[in-house]
Amino acid sequence: MTIKTVSAPANANTISAIAALIGDPARANILLALMGGKALTASELAYCAGVTPQTASGHLAKLVDGGLVSVEKQGRHRYHRLASASVAEAFESLSGLAATGPRRHRTTGPKDAAMRQARTCYDHMAGRLAVAITDALSSRQLIIIEDRSGLITDEGKSFFAGLGLDLDPKAKSARPLCRTCLDWSERRMHLGGRLGASLLQRSIECNWVRPGNDSRSLTITRGGERGFQDLFGIPVEVLMLQRKA
């Protein structure tokens, strides 16, 4: 007999505890750095947070204990990453709330245009490009979105198979096959789940997008402009914005 584990419902104490973990600026910067999907060392995260390695280690211990960050050891190094896609989605939503806050608290910079155009959100795409892809797939009824959940239609299964995506619905995975994530810069939904992750991976393999070395931003290549326009029908003006910026 299989016994299912049921998570305890959230209450004010657990919610405030998670909020306190995220509420520290250094820990928030650590989580922001990990939103790129890469596993980073404590030293790298210390640099991102603007604190000493010793201070960063203390913050990381709290984030690991709170279930927001996981750690794995390889040789002499310990690498940290977000504990799950759910953490990334929650942080993306919080970023959207922060972006609508008082203007004096908003940060701007030269990377804003690139980040808004296309970026990683943990292991899937976000920004104008991701929202445009989601809209295109939905309008062609390749996917059906209801609230935060998504369904891949029979036409969609054929389409994604043609792209070389392995989206076996019977595959054992705790990750939803198709769901949406609220985009902080566009205030609209982009694709997450296994489908969103597979689309990003395939786009990188096809050299349609190139990840930045020190940023979450994604560069849309010339080949990507053609690919996204031909396969998804993305308007050329959406794809050209990054180059103009």
Rank of each mutant, 00 (worst) to 15 (best):
M1D: 15
I3K: 14
N11Y: 13
T14Q: 09
I15F: 11
A20Y: 10
L21T: 04
G23Q: 04
D24N: 12
I30Y: 06
L32E: 14
M35C: 14
A39W: 03
L40C: 14
L40Y: 07
L40W: 03
A42E: 05
E44G: 11
A46S: 10
A46D: 02
Y47S: 13
Y47E: 13
V51A: 02
T52R: 07
P53A: 00
P53S: 01
Q54V: 11
Q54F: 10
T55L: 06
H59W: 05
V64I: 07
V64D: 04
D65T: 08
G67R: 04
G67L: 07
G67A: 07
L68N: 08
L68R: 06
V69T: 07
V71P: 02
K73F: 05
V87H: 01
A88D: 00
F91L: 13
F91G: 02
S93A: 11
L94N: 04
S95R: 15
G96K: 01
L97G: 07
A98M: 12
T100G: 10
R103V: 14
T108L: 14
K111C: 15
A114I: 09
A118H: 05
T120M: 07
T120D: 02
T120Y: 02
C121L: 10
Y122K: 01
D123M: 00
H124F: 03
M125K: 05
G127C: 08
A132E: 06
I133S: 01
I133R: 01
T134W: 00
T134L: 01
D135F: 02
L137K: 05
L137E: 04
S139N: 11
Q141V: 10
L142N: 09
I143W: 00
S149K: 12
G150R: 03
L151H: 14
I152H: 01
I152R: 07
D154L: 13
G156L: 05
K157N: 06
F159E: 03
F160M: 00
G164C: 04
L165H: 05
D166S: 11
D168A: 10
P169Q: 05
K170N: 14
K170L: 13
A171N: 02
S173H: 02
R179C: 11
R179T: 03
C181R: 03
D183K: 00
D183H: 03
S185K: 03
E186A: 08
M189D: 11
H190C: 15
H190G: 05
L195W: 00
G196Q: 01
G196F: 02
L199M: 10
E205M: 09
C206F: 09
C206I: 09
P211G: 09
P211M: 09
R216Q: 10
T219A: 13
I220Y: 06
T221F: 09
R222L: 15
G223W: 11
E225G: 15
R226T: 13
Q229L: 08
G233V: 00
G233A: 06
E237D: 15
M240K: 15
L241I: 12
R243P: 04
R243I: 08
K244P: 00
